[in-house]
Simulated scan of single mutants.
Amino acid sequence: MRAGYSYHNFWWIPHDRDGSFEAKGLNGQHLHVNPAAELVVVKLSSHPVPNTAFTHVLDRQAFAAIAQAVRGQRGAQ
Rank of each mutant, 00 (worst) to 15 (best):
W11N: 03
W11Q: 05
W12T: 01
W12P: 00
W12D: 10
I13D: 10
I13K: 04
P14N: 12
P14R: 10
P14M: 07
P14H: 08
P14S: 12
D16M: 12
D16E: 05
D16N: 15
D16V: 11
D18Q: 13
D18S: 14
G19V: 08
G19W: 13
G19D: 06
S20M: 05
F21W: 12
F21Y: 14
F21S: 03
F21I: 01
E22Q: 05
E22D: 08
E22F: 03
K24E: 15
K24D: 15
K24S: 15
G25T: 04
G25R: 06
N27M: 06
N27R: 07
G28Y: 02
G28A: 00
Q29G: 03
Q29I: 01
Q29N: 11
H30D: 06
L31N: 01
L31G: 06
H32Y: 15
H32G: 09
H32I: 14
V33S: 02
V33Q: 02
V33P: 00
N34S: 11
N34D: 15
N34L: 08
P35F: 12
P35E: 13
P35G: 13
P35C: 14
A36V: 04
A36L: 12
A37S: 15
A37M: 07
E38V: 01
E38Y: 00
E38T: 04
E38W: 00
L39Q: 09
L39P: 08
V40R: 00
V40H: 04
V40K: 04
V40A: 12
V41D: 05
K43M: 14
L44V: 12
S46G: 13
S46T: 13
S46D: 15
H47N: 13
H47W: 08
H47Q: 08
P48K: 10
P48S: 07
V49N: 12
P50I: 09
P50H: 04
N51H: 11
T52N: 10
T52C: 04
A53C: 06
F54S: 09
F54K: 12
T55A: 09
H56D: 13
V57A: 14
V57W: 00
V57I: 08
R60E: 13
Q61W: 02
Q61N: 04
Q61R: 01
A62H: 01
A62K: 00
A62F: 06
A62M: 02
F63K: 01
F63W: 09
A64Q: 09
A64M: 08
I66V: 15
I66L: 15
I66K: 10
A67W: 01
Q68L: 06
Q68R: 07
A69K: 05
A69V: 04
V70S: 03
V70H: 06
R71H: 08
R71F: 03
Q73D: 11
Q73Y: 15
